[in-house]
Design a binder for these strands. Structure first.
Lengths: 248, 248
DNA sequence: CGCGAACTTGATATTTGTCAACTAAGGTGG
DNA sequence: CCACCTTAGTTGACAAATATCAAGTTCGCG
């Protein structure tokens, strides 16, 4: 079955059939978000936790001057705000300029899960920590790489993450976002983003039209971007240690 | 008692006397790290979790070209690698160019804690999520602010975080790091960092000499940096909801 | 077909990086 | 206590990356 949450978490921890059934149950009731509607906003204290099932969403912050920084793209299988159960308020907003399908999960459900399902709890922990690792990598990307490498790096990341949840075919994926959005994620101007993109295009590193992005030669793009996917921690470690995960 | 871990966690969750005693016990055996020794390195799988008790440490990544990005400063009360218990390997390094005092905590101890002490577990969760929020803010900072505001913002953050653990007096704190380190945290050149710093100095926003940084007029610096500390989640929410935190 | 949003392009300004030299500070051995 | 030596900080001239402004052009949709 093509449940993105399960597909993703299987990379973090071994799940058994019961775990899968629980997760499947969790993601039964989906809801469509219309274009340009935010899922939750800075300062709010949402009652539900949200999970992306189809399409893209993003985390972002708006500054006083109106500038926007996107701090994460959320793809199918990603939680939007798992943290809100512990931190009181949202310290950023979740938006979707492109429409997507999500699941609402009551906070209490998450709390029950963490109380009763150690394997699932650990998997959620894992997902949170991968998010954190991704954030670190974005910071490195922004601080140390020039815009062209940076853009290439982001594309590599998306390719890997989307492949995990089965959204990649023919080295290409749906990419409904706008060049201006991409610019806001990279911390550059949309004009500059456009120029950099054309660079990548003429180098034959990416093709992007009709809201679909294709990577003709992944190896080449990975090399150009110096992309190393280790920070995504996709190597499920079912090694000897913690064979049956005692606690946590 | 001046235990930075306890002081910090009290901001996240209510602790009772027993919790405090457990945490106190946890941080009994400190160890001095010499200058320029790393605490742990990318790719490693450390057996212990590390906690800073005195001084500064940092998270960083080195790129192929030798460039370094510091992705976090770790101050007293901060865990260096709580995540390593779940993600297999370190995806970044922890270093201290300045010497600091830490505590080593065996992974198993953390696991016992999370199994038996829900209030402490929740506090550790909280600390992790604050780290994540901080990372997001750094990203915003780097993406959208110019270097002078960005530096001012970082200084505001450090002032607040150090105040929480009692390391600020007379609006000043020990700041043993080097201009080049600061530059690596901001994603700029050390030459540029120097110029920006002199700017802040002549504007009377910061004083920095003899490894001590003083903020003569905090309000002014906060305004200059557009600093809003909400992302540090220091408003302990002992509000009606989850009065005794059931699970997690 | 027409309209607005997204994309593209050029000219120019600003910010930041690079290189290279120089000064100041701190620590070590004699 | 001084001489030396290394590291940190400072400065200037110049180059490169990115932003800004302003004007098209194309595309998708009603």
């Amino acid at each position: 079955m093509s449940n993105p949450l399960i597909m993703k978490l299987e990379y973090g921890t071994r799940l058994n059939d019961k775990d899968r059934a629980v997760l499947q149950q969790l993601t039964r009731r989906t809801r469509r978000i219309v274009r340009h509607a935010d899922i939750s906003s800075e300062g709010e204290r949402p009652e539900n936790v949200h999970l992306v099932m189809e399409g893209f969403a993003c985390r972002y912050k708006i500054l006083a001057g109106g500038r926007r920084q996107i701090v994460a793209f959320l793809v199918p299988g990603d939680f939007c705000d798992l943290h809100v159960a512990i931190l009181g308020k949202m310290d950023h907003s979740i938006g979707t300029g492109w429409g997507c399908t999500i699941v609402d999960i009551p906070r209490s459900t998450i709390e029950d899960l963490t109380a009763q399902q150690p394997r699932i709890t650990r998997a959620l922990w894992w997902a949170t920590l991968v998010d954190e690792g991704t954030l670190r990598e974005w910071l490195v990307n922004m601080g140390q790489r020039e815009a062209d490498r940076q853009m290439a790096h982001l594309i590599c990341e998306l390719l890997v993450r989307l492949r995990v949840v089965g959204m990649v075919s023919d080295n290409s994926f749906e990419f409904p976002i706008t060049q201006a959005d991409l610019a806001d994620a990279l911390g550059i101007t949309s004009v500059h983003a456009n120029r950099v993109l054309q660079d990548l295009r003429t180098q034959g590193l990416v093709e992007w039209k009709n809201k679909r992005l294709r990577i003709p030669n992944e190896e080449q793009l990975v090399e150009f971007a110096e992309f190393d996917p280790n920070y995504l921690h996709l190597d499920r470690r079912d090694d000897a240690e913690d064979p049956d995960l005692g606690t946590l």
